[in-house]
Amino acid sequence: MMNQEERDGYRFIGWYIDPECTKRINPGGKLPSAITLYDKWVPILYPIHYDCHGGINSRRNPRYVTVETGLLRLFPARKRGMRFIGWCLDGERIEYLPPHITKPLTLEAMFCEPSLVRFETNGGGRIAERTTTDSGLLERFRPPMRLGYTFDGWYLDERLTFPFDFDMPLNESITLYAKWKITLFRITYHLDGGLASRMNPRSYSYFDLDIELLPARKKGYRFLGWFDARGNALDWIRHNSIGDKELFARYEKEREFECTPKIR
């Protein structure tokens, strides 16, 4: 008869006389001269030991596996003030338990200090140093401000080549670098049926020199000037101005002069 060692990961239960293995052979009974016997095996439960080094294991991690267990995801352990890096099996870092396990396992939790993140804002407002969460992520926060510029993201290098993503886990302390682009403010012209000069700009920046706004034209009317929504005259956009502008053209109807004949 077959024995337990002949099938790795299984325990031999016994011999049966039916293919479904529901009728076990009677060791003391008399067998017919010709009979087919069926062997029955059950998977062996192998325990998993988790060495968390003072941390707390996830309740979602399995306690036992068998040779029939498929690929299993491992969930992180937690340790106060530390960041979980991963599980280690036989000196190799793993994220999943491999299939077809045929022995007890010991998994070791790996932790490290939270990463320190410094910020070079490149002319923007100062951002204090921050540390990553237990999962190694940097929590999102309000970006710095810089007059005349729009914040265009954090980068991993001074040349602003490799962008940083807040979904990116950090395994070491780093410095992030701010990228900026000049802010362009919109200029909207309300012409009241007139025509604007094509030389009037559609946008401007904080750094532009004084911009003279050229008059609009409307047939039968004289242009009086540009005004803002409050009624203030605005024929120039001054250097170091900020904000979108809405300009309203005002006109005055031209007078019609009639020629009166002279009396002799």
Rank of each mutant, 00 (worst) to 15 (best):
Asn3Glu: 04
Gln4Ser: 12
Arg7Met: 09
Asp8Ala: 02
Tyr10Glu: 04
Tyr10Thr: 02
Ile13Phe: 03
Trp15Ala: 03
Glu20Pro: 03
Glu20Leu: 09
Lys23Arg: 11
Lys23Phe: 13
Ser33Tyr: 00
Leu37Cys: 07
Tyr38Gln: 06
Asp39Val: 10
Trp41Thr: 05
Ile44Arg: 01
Ile44His: 02
Ile48Leu: 05
Cys52Phe: 07
Cys52Asn: 12
His53Glu: 12
Gly55Ile: 02
Ser58Met: 08
Arg59Trp: 06
Arg63Phe: 03
Tyr64Asn: 12
Tyr64Cys: 08
Leu71Pro: 01
Leu72Ser: 00
Leu72Ala: 00
Leu72Val: 09
Phe75Pro: 01
Pro76Ala: 07
Gly81Met: 08
Arg83Ile: 12
Glu92Ser: 14
Glu95Gln: 05
Ile101Glu: 05
Pro104Asn: 05
Leu105Tyr: 09
Ala109Asn: 04
Ala109Lys: 04
Met110Trp: 10
Pro114Gln: 14
Pro114Asp: 11
Arg118Trp: 06
Phe119Trp: 06
Gly124Arg: 01
Arg126Phe: 14
Glu129His: 05
Arg130Ile: 07
Thr131Lys: 13
Thr131Tyr: 12
Thr132Ser: 03
Asp134Lys: 10
Gly136Cys: 09
Leu137Arg: 11
Arg140Cys: 08
Arg146Ala: 03
Tyr149Phe: 15
Tyr149Val: 01
Asp157Trp: 11
Asp167Glu: 08
Met168Trp: 09
Pro169Phe: 03
Glu172Trp: 02
Ala178Met: 03
Trp180Asn: 03
His190Ile: 10
Gly194Met: 01
Met199Gln: 12
Met199Asp: 14
Asn200His: 04
Arg202Asn: 13
Asp210Met: 11
Ile211Gln: 06
Glu212Gln: 02
Glu212Tyr: 06
Leu213His: 05
Pro215Ser: 03
Pro215Trp: 09
Arg217Leu: 14
Gly220Pro: 00
Tyr221Trp: 13
Tyr221Phe: 15
Arg230Glu: 14
Arg230Gln: 15
Arg230Lys: 11
Asp235Gly: 10
Trp236His: 12
Ile242Asn: 07
Glu246Met: 06
Ala249Val: 09
Ala249Lys: 08
Glu252Gly: 07
Glu256Val: 10
Glu258Asn: 12
Ile263Pro: 07
